[in-house]
């Protein structure tokens, strides 16, 4: 699957890409929401995985912007905080995952569920 990863922390982005590469996914990392929108406008992806808290544009704002632009691409949100309130706030998210060491396990599973 062709996946766009959005994270302002390059280490976390690389880590997510490393996890997904194990299952043969083709990942591209960008460091912010604006860059993500530009990339999505010029290239086709099958999934967006985005960090929640980023400067300029949050993950949730990116999600809202995409839906606003009538882009229905599945969207997984990663957050350092409790994911429950975010899940409630944005029911359209494919998933919302906690950013911690369990990501290695939870991320491939979430992608497989799509």
């Amino acid at each position: 699957m062709k996946i766009l990863i959005v994270d302002d922390d390059p280490f976390v982005g690389e880590m997510a890409a490393a996890i997904l590469a194990c299952d043969g996914h083709d990942c591209r990392i960008v460091e912010g929401g604006v860059e993500a929108l530009e990339t999505l406008a010029s290239e086709t992806f099958e999934l967006v995985i985005s960090d929640m808290n980023m400067p300029l544009m949050s993950g949730l704002a990116l999600f809202a912007e995409l839906r606003e632009r009538a882009c229905a691409i599945p969207f997984i949100l990663l957050t350092g905080d409790d994911p429950e309130p975010l899940r409630a706030e944005a029911p359209g998210l494919a998933d919302c995952l906690m950013k911690d060491a369990t990501l290695e396990d939870s991320l491939p599973k979430a992608v497989a569920r799509l």
């Binding site: 390059p10 280490f11 982005g13 690389e14 996890i19 590469a21 990942c27 990392i29 960008v30």
Partner: peptide, 28 residues
Amino acid sequence: MSDTHQGAPRESFKVRKARLRAAFIEQL
């Protein structure tokens, strides 16, 4: 760092993770 992963995916995850982790510790 953002686009350098192309070509590396077949590198073992263990190794890649260890490398990332080491780099992460280094910049902490």
